[in-house]
């Protein structure tokens, strides 16, 4: 090492020294350009053509036809609506369940570490397993959940037959799988509340609700917001659970926008149309990600 310092730096050393930043990041940028950015540009170009991947016909340039077709298509809007329903209800329940779980695990108690692990396990399952096994639990004759509910109400429980039931069934599985995520974030917030504030509140005999509103909530507000945004982005992409539990049915009542794009691209093979639709989704995600990062940075400044 010391001999290097005494010799005159060669061309490569000088080059390295001058462009260290770009050189370090370039391999990563290269891979991302090849596998993400380039495909994105490709599909952007494709979205202005009429092209089907299963035909030999040459692509035809059609300007904004695909976009106009999509934005004026009531089917697309109804898929967006379905997705919005999923996002709204699912994220809301994830927040509620996640928050309650966090309150449960807030204080230390014997066995906390192991129990926390049990609650976190759903997040580590593969989507395929969650989808498949919830279908198994919902199965009307031998499904576990169906049998339990049948035993209580006395009526057969066929949840996946009705549109509302199917939506509820998917949301139930999704909430079960992702509430632990919200729990983790809320837990992080709860731990950061200074203990002396609670002690002061105890001396002043402040009510439970007031204590929550004035002490706890300000500390977890930022993290709750991040949880909402993160889960909104992820639920917006909801694909695997729908694909495996209901395949979009009954009818198309549970077909989210992600499942719809999949169908347009790989079942109807309207390739260029799906590319255009993809770009509309990309716009939504970019806006949400921007918001997310804005709040992450604001939180970093505050702490």
């Amino acid at each position: 090492m010391t001999t290097v310092a005494t010799t005159k730096p060669g061309f490569f050393e000088r080059f390295f020294a001058r462009h260290r930043g770009p050189l370090l990041v370039s391999p990563a940028i290269l891979v991302l350009v090849a596998m993400n950015i380039f495909p994105l540009f490709w599909s952007f170009g494709l979205s202005f053509y009429k092209y089907r991947a299963n035909r030999q016909a040459e692509p035809v340039f059609v300007w904004f036809d695909n976009y106009i077709k999509i934005l004026s298509d009531p089917v697309v809007w109804s898929r967006f609506q379905t997705t919005a329903i999923f996002v709204a209800i699912s994220v809301l329940f994830q927040l509620i369940v996640g928050f309650l779980l966090a309150v449960l695990f807030e204080k230390q108690f014997p066995g906390r570490r192991v129990l926390l692990m049990l609650v976190l396990t759903p997040m580590m399952l593969s989507f395929v397993a969650v989808g498949a096994f919830f279908r198994y639990y919902y199965e009307p004759t031998f499904g576990l959940l169906s049998q339990a509910i049948k035993a209580i109400t006395g009526e057969p429980f066929i949840i996946l037959q009705s549109p509302a039931g199917a939506i509820g069934a998917i949301i139930f599985a999704d909430v079960w799988m992702w509430s632990p995520f919200v729990m983790l974030l809320v837990l992080a917030g709860l731990v950061s509340v200074p203990k002396h504030l609670y002690e002061a509140a105890e001396i002043d005999r402040v009510s439970w609700w007031r204590r929550f509103r004035t002490i706890t909530f300000p500390y977890i507000r930022g993290l709750l917001l991040l949880a909402v945004l993160f889960r909104t982005i992820e639920t917006f992409k909801l694909f695997d659970a729908v694909f495996l539990i209901t395949e979009g049915g009954p009818g198309t009542s549970t077909e989210t926008i992600a499942v719809y794009v999949y169908r347009v691209a790989f079942q109807y093979f309207r390739t260029s149309e799906s590319a255009a639709l993809g770009y509309i989704l990309l716009f939504v995600v970019v806006v949400l990600t921007n918001l997310y990062l804005f709040f992450v940075q604001r939180r970093a400044r505050e702490t």
Binding site: P39, S43, K237, A258, V261, A265, T271, G278, V286
Partner: peptide, 9 residues
Amino acid sequence: LPPIIVIIP
């Protein structure tokens, strides 16, 4: 972003 966007190209 939804993987479905990148997956087509």
